[in-house]
Every structure is written in structure tokens, then in C-alpha cells.
């Protein structure tokens, strides 16, 4: 079993979509980092990501990895949020795969992402749904 610590430490990012804004250059990092890759800045303020965005690119995975088999077909997308931050998320509640498109507006909803078996922890985070 993985220690609960591994997912617990990511709760601010996964649960609340907290990101780090570099006080030097303004770049928003999600997830936060220790050093800004753009300007080398090491001071950040916490900002919350917007929950609306659009699909940059996507795929429909017919052969999902362990822990996601029951959810096939699994729609994964790179989503660009309103503030320009990109994040890889699942797209849930797609009524018809033909509706998926680059540029499609989505919003992020709080969902279960995976679980450590029937008796283990449930890992929560965000998924995109059609807006």
C-alpha cells in the first residue's frame, strides 16, 4: 500500500486547484514548484485556478491502465484553463464521442479519480465535463 502521505500532500492542488504564481515574472505554475522555470524566481503566491477552459487536444483511450478499466473508453484531454494554465485531465460525462473537439469548452468538476482497491483510499481530484 502506498502511504496516504503521497496523495495527502497534493490535496491543495488536486482538491482546490491551488497553483503558484511567480512573484518575479507572473508565470502560474500548476503544480507549484520550488523554482520558476522562466525567470528562476523562488517566491510565489498561491492562486486558485479557474474551472473553465477549452480542450487543446484529446484522445479516447480504449485500453485504459490498471485502476481505470471500468471506465473505458477513457477520454483524456489537455485542457487550457481561462488563465492560460494547461492541465491533463479526464473528460467525463461525454454523451457522444463525436461531440469531442479541439476547442470544446469544458469546466472542471470534483470527481473520484481512482481508488486503492475496495478497501484502500479513494483519490479525488478534478475532471473536465462538457460546459
Amino acid at each position: 500500500m502506498r502511504s496516504p502521505g503521497r496523495s495527502w500532500r497534493e490535496h491543495p492542488q488536486r482538491y482546490r486547484l491551488e497553483a503558484a504564481k511567480c512573484t518575479g515574472c507572473g508565470r502560474i505554475l500548476y503544480p507549484p514548484r520550488v523554482v520558476c522555470p522562466d525567470c528562476g524566481g523562488r517566491e510565489f503566491e498561491t492562486v486558485t485556478l479557474p474551472r473553465k477552459g477549452t480542450i487543446v487536444t484529446y484522445t479516447v483511450i480504449d485500453v485504459p491502465p490498471t485502476g481505470f478499466q471500468g471506465q473505458a473508453p477513457l477520454v483524456l484531454a489537455l485542457v487550457e484553463l481561462e488563465n492560460g494554465v494547461r492541465t491533463m485531465v479526464q473528460v467525463a460525462d461525454v454523451p457522444d464521442m463525436d461531440r469531442l473537439a479541439v476547442g470544446m469548452p469544458v469546466k472542471l468538476e470534483f470527481r473520484r479519480i481512482s481508488e486503492d482497491g475496495e478497501a484502500g483510499l479513494i483519490f479525488y481530484g478534478h475532471k473536465a465535463v462538457p460546459a
Binding site: E10, P31, V56, T57, Y58, T59, I61, V63, P64, P65, T66, G67, F68, Q71, L74, L76, A77, L78, T87, M88, V89, Q90, V102, I113, S114, F123, G125, K127
Partner: peptide, 30 residues
Amino acid sequence: TYALGTAADQEWEAFHGVTFPGLYAMMARL
């Protein structure tokens, strides 16, 4: 698939269920 998937970012890509065919498929689409 899991072992290969460890070459992707575990906390921010694999966490969400992405696979390598999936990542390359997203590049292919663009």
C-alpha cells in the same frame, strides 16, 4: 502498461489515467 506509464509524470498525468498511446495520440491529433 503501468511500468511503461511510469515514464510519464506520475502525479499529474498517470494519476488521471493517461497511457503512452494516449499521450502520442494527443500529439497526433494536433
